[in-house]
Design a protein around this nucleic acid. Sequence first.
DNA 1: ACCTGAACACCGTTCAAGT
DNA 2: ACCTGAACACCGTTCAAGT
Lengths: 218, 218
Amino acid sequence: MVAMPGKERLSKERIIDAAARVADRGGINAVTMRQVGSELGVEAMSLYHHVSNKDALLNELSEWLFRKIQIPNVDARWRDALSERAHSASEVLRAHPWGLGMLESRPQPGQSQLRHYDSMMGRLSEAGFSATLATTAFATVDAFVFGFVLTESTLPFDPATGAEQEYADEVGLDESEFPHLARTLGDLFSSGHYSFGDEFSAGLTILLDGIERRLLGE
Amino acid sequence: MVAMPGKERLSKERIIDAAARVADRGGINAVTMRQVGSELGVEAMSLYHHVSNKDALLNELSEWLFRKIQIPNVDARWRDALSERAHSASEVLRAHPWGLGMLESRPQPGQSQLRHYDSMMGRLSEAGFSATLATTAFATVDAFVFGFVLTESTLPFDPATGAEQEYADEVGLDESEFPHLARTLGDLFSSGHYSFGDEFSAGLTILLDGIERRLLGE
DNA sequence: ACCTGAACACCGTTCAAGT
DNA sequence: ACCTGAACACCGTTCAAGT
């Protein structure tokens, strides 16, 4: 048998990459053994020679994604380290929003997560954080990042395009039913350049300020 | 025909309640038309007389869940209002962790969400928040809550039982590979009563302190 | 008006069979 | 050693049929 054109050997790596492409196109529900197989020009059953089942494939996919989050520089000051982690994580998750839906059903922090924890605990303890405060700080920043991207992904407009106002107009919020909300939105848009995406750094700054205050008070 | 024992008339409400029970038992993936039907002693096809399809049912289920989050008292001070919202939301989501997985794939804030936004904007603007700061404050607290419960749900131990140490021992973290992490965990557990669940109020306090600082500085 | 059975195009997974 | 076809028990959904 001659090698077929465009048909390389299967491997775990190629399967995970294919699964990621399928998820990027159609969300996590599109990731079926049959779809991933067809992305590779192969029957679904062939995948079972390289991953033990679908659940294992999803675990690998989750690791694949979280490995993309950058580990902050060893020389970074604590504030930069937390901030870099937050920005890198939010970028990765924004590019692959299906990752959040996976978090809930995947168990266990994987190797890539542990490497992140370890590195961050190193930076923070060097900066004088107690074990407790370091844990709180990291957990809080991570929770904020995950939750923010999750919220963002449910918005009915794309925050990147700044179409917030068009959306609000379109919905035609009932002013008598939601007076406070209507006024707030009016105020936001009257400035002419409100973007929900900016809330990310605003929230992160509030968080880091809160952590700094706690650090100095310890 | 005589009414069958235990077989009341179907209704949208009964279907949503049944779907919630199925999700509580088996997670969101267990919510299939056939499973929900069988929970009600009825064929899957019968459901289509009351909900247009599965997607509509999941939207109703999402509304059902978010309606459970308490709207803070009108007289509450801003800090209490945000704190009550955070605690109520985290309780509801902790009791029904499948709700988070739904957020990502559900579009649109529903009526119950809008009511919350409106009420909170009312409390915050009375307390002197600008529209921008009010939005940032609410978005940040919500992101933190969602993200925290999401993180918590991926932990391999139940934070309510305080079995953190047993887990850490069991994993047998490689001290040479993750030295900082190992030391941090050692410090945490040496106090004898570390509980990850406590990170919630610790993080929330940091957040509220950060918001207060911003409010006074405006 | 409300419920159902059969049917269709999908799933994950097993297993025996091909090369 | 690696891939596949047929099969099984599941999905969501349609549609014609029952009461």
